[in-house]
């Protein structure tokens, strides 16, 4: 902890140091409620590698968000093994930062853009450390909000608010970004720009991203691997699909078209032939 305060940017070193998987999930079980227990997740098996972009894809209510909340430490597993860097997850921590769809609720509306980015460091008491001040600037620049730094969240657009959330998360130098359908409420054009911005940030900063979505195209645009979840109750990771296409990906790419049809089939039971028409 003290080392962090002295050495401002240990992130690259930290990434190099660690070799094993970031998350390792074995036989994970999550049950809600006591009187009428609801089995949300059952026998979930998943490994998330360091630096990879993983999409959790599934229909509404299949437990994707529950799994993400478990990874963040907001929820406790009911059974099975849930490891982060080979250690059980005890609770939320700033090495695993969650990114929410509802930016208004997640951000501090009474603080300026810059104060929101500084918030994580303020909590650690690191705000006035020289190295970290530069980090704030870097994050504001990275998401293109430097000239809006003195505005409050209600004065900027929805897309900007999501970029602000990214900047705020990156400022605390997390190892993992956990994203819960972050762009689902945005219009198509803004959403596309956000995909580009996110990939840009991810490629430069090389962090692990676990991204929840129900949108096949979004998953195909972003992910290294797509983990398809089965329909609940008791859902699990039914398939894992690797995407080797280089980025930026072209939606017209026939290989992606095949994958789209395949995923459509896995998700909705639509046969590949039907979906190709």
């Amino acid at each position: 902890m003290d080392m962090r305060a002295e050495a401002p940017s240990p992130r690259t070193e930290r990434a190099r140091r660690r070799g094993g998987p970031v998350f390792s999930i074995k036989g994970l079980l999550k049950v809600f409620g006591d009187d009428k227990p609801y089995v949300a997740l059952k026998d979930v098996e998943l490994t998330v590698e360091n630096g990879e972009f993983l999409c959790l894809l599934g229909a509404s209510g299949c437990g994707k968000s529950t799994l993400l909340n478990l990874l963040a430490g907001f929820e406790k597993p009911s059974g099975g093994e849930l490891l982060y860097n080979s250690k059980p997850i005890a609770g939320p921590g700033r090495e695993r930062v969650m990114f929410f769809q509802d930016a208004n609720a997640a951000l501090l509306p009474w603080q300026t853009v810059q104060q929101n980015v500084e918030f994580g460091l303020k909590l650690q008491g690191l705000l006035h450390n020289q190295g970290w001040r530069e980090r704030i600037e870097e994050c504001l620049e990275l998401v293109g909000l430097a000239e809006h730094r003195h505005k409050v969240p209600s004065e900027i657009s929805g897309g900007m608010r999501q970029r602000l959330q990214i900047a705020r998360a990156l400022a605390v130098e997390p190892d993992v970004l956990l994203m819960d359908e972050p762009f689902a409420a945005l219009d198509a054009i803004t959403r596309r720009r956000m995909h580009e911005a996110l990939l840009d940030v991810w490629q430069r900063e090389k962090r692990t991203v676990v991204f929840v979505t129900h949108d096949i195209m979004e998953a195909l645009t972003l992910a290294d691997r797509i983990a398809v979840m089965s329909v609940g109750p008791g859902s699990r990771i039914a398939h894992i699909i690797e995407i080797k296409q280089p980025r930026p990906r072209n939606p017209a790419d026939p290989e992606l078209g095949h994958l789209f049809a395949h995923l459509e089939h896995l998700l909705h039971g639509v046969s590949p032939e039907e979906s190709m028409q």
Partner: peptide, 8 residues
């Protein structure tokens, strides 16, 4: 929850 993630 967002604040918890950031180490509050």
């Amino acid at each position: 929850n967002a604040a918890l993630c950031l180490g509050a």
